[in-house]
Design a protein around this nucleic acid. Structure first.
Lengths: 114, 114
DNA sequence: TGAACATATGAGCATGTATTCATATGAAAA
DNA sequence: TTTTCATATGAATACATGCTCATATGTTCA
């Protein structure tokens, strides 16, 4: 943006070529964003333990049923979570084992472990 | 929040007990949030390829030097990125291999692979 | 020491987003 | 079919956040 500054054009070119494409970056970042909110993180972690309905999650999170529902929709769009009907209830569970790994790795990071 | 709804108290109690503590959830979510922005994701991905200075990143991202610097500070606080001085330049690189794994797993997720 | 340069920081703005309230939807039970 | 109940959706709001501009900091080299 400003005057040339220090740019090492060679480095920049090399990295630019090897780097993920912009749209791929955006998609990856979007997944991280989905997990980057305490409420959604708790929802995902909870569903990693046990399949739960919206009401259960609402009680667990201490957040309104509406709020939980909104977040679940978001997580479902990202294929992090899936749902199935059981009688009157809609039961939610994880749609993807990747997520479990992601959380474990990150938990290790914050604990300065391994 | 509302009337009892469907709550299965047993499920809720079990999950509540096994769930990560709130502060741990917050820390984990915070790491994901750091990676959950396209600009920061690109920075981290770029540094995964090669050590770069702020000016290089600024050129690569097409964002002001100031903007890059702000994001780098955030990533440094989270121990995702580290820096060292080399003459006039400050060279940034990844501080943690965990991050590389996180990105790979998530790239697989968005590609519906493995 | 002083000038030049790379980086860091603070303020401000424009945009995004998490939550709630009120209400709609739709399956199930009566 | 009608009622009931769990979930979903839309609007509104309060708050967070990414970016830029202007400027401060601090290191290097003359």
């Amino acid at each position: 943006m400003e005057s040339k500054c220090c740019v090492n054009q060679e480095n920049v070119d090399i990295v630019r070529e090897e780097l993920y494409a912009d749209n791929e970056i955006a998609e990856i970042a979007d997944i991280f964003k989905s997990l980057g909110d305490p409420t959604r993180m708790r929802i995902v972690a909870a569903l990693g333990i046990r399949e739960l309905c919206v009401g259960d999650l609402s009680a667990l999170m201490e957040i309104s049923q509406s709020g939980v529902s909104h977040q679940l929709r978001l997580l479902k769009q990202k294929r992090i979570v899936k749902s199935r009907r059981e009688g009157k209830l809609i039961m939610y569970s994880l749609d993807d084992q990747h997520v479990v790994d992601l959380i474990k790795i990150t938990a290790n990071h914050v604990r300065h472990e391994e």
